[in-house]
């Protein structure tokens, strides 16, 4: 585990700044890019906390897979988005507001009135990566095996359900198309 303060503050600044940016940017593609930076910075935070496995999963799923799904859905749904322009003042406002939030967090954290010394009893645990991986395997395959199986079942149901929805929709559309064709044929015969 690293628990480096420089890594923590840089990554947390990126998380706060780009999460605010992704909410208030008008262009949806830019907000998606900001969300990707937030998810990667979160994986750095996980690595800083000593959980390499979670960091890799966060970077793989939230950093790559989820933005691809969102990007494809943006391509299918949004049409007139690329002409919107952002003003430089809004970028500056969001940048300094996130700096202010970071300073606020830092002031609260270093004040002994908020967190007395006697209250902070938790110290970070030092484990090797092998121990963490071993406990992961025990947790997934022994302690939480039913929850893990339920999650995999849920993912399978999601995939099967989406495929069935798509098939039903196509069948419905082809049925409507055939009826329209029949009506057109009848009209042509009448004429």
């Amino acid at each position: 585990m690293i628990n480096n303060s420089v890594v923590f503050f840089v990554a947390s600044f990126f998380i706060i700044c780009f999460s605010i940016l992704s909410l208030f940017l008008k262009n949806i593609i830019y907000s998606l890019l900001c969300a990707i930076i937030v998810f990667f910075s979160t994986s750095i935070i996980f690595y800083n906390l000593g959980s390499e496995y979670n960091a890799i999963i966060q970077a793989a799923i939230y950093g790559f897979a989820v933005p691809i799904i969102i990007g494809i859905s943006i391509m299918f749904t949004t049409k007139k988005i690329y002409n919107k322009k952002e003003s430089f003042i809004s970028f500056l406002t969001i940048f300094f507001s996130s700096l202010f939030i970071m300073a606020f967090v830092y002031i609260i954290m270093i004040s002994n009135a908020m967190i007395p010394n006697t209250f902070n009893v938790a110290n970070i645990q030092q484990f090797s990566s092998y121990d963490v991986l071993l406990e992961f395997a025990k947790g997934i395959f022994i302690n939480y095996v039913w929850a893990f199986e339920l999650l995999s079942l849920l993912l399978t149901v999601v995939i099967a359900g989406l495929t069935l929805f798509n098939k039903k929709e196509r069948h419905y559309k082809s049925k409507i198309g055939n009826e329209k064709l029949k009506i057109n044929h009848k009209e042509a015969e009448i004429v």
């Binding site: 000593g50 979670n54 645990q125 992961f136 302690n143 999650l151 849920l154």
Partner: peptide, 26 residues
Amino acid sequence: SYCDNYKFDGYIMALFYVGLGAAELA
């Protein structure tokens, strides 16, 4: 990382949440 001494349950819960979040988003 701070409070769990030996079992790392929070790591596994975070793993489940990532899977649930991806399914929910899809």
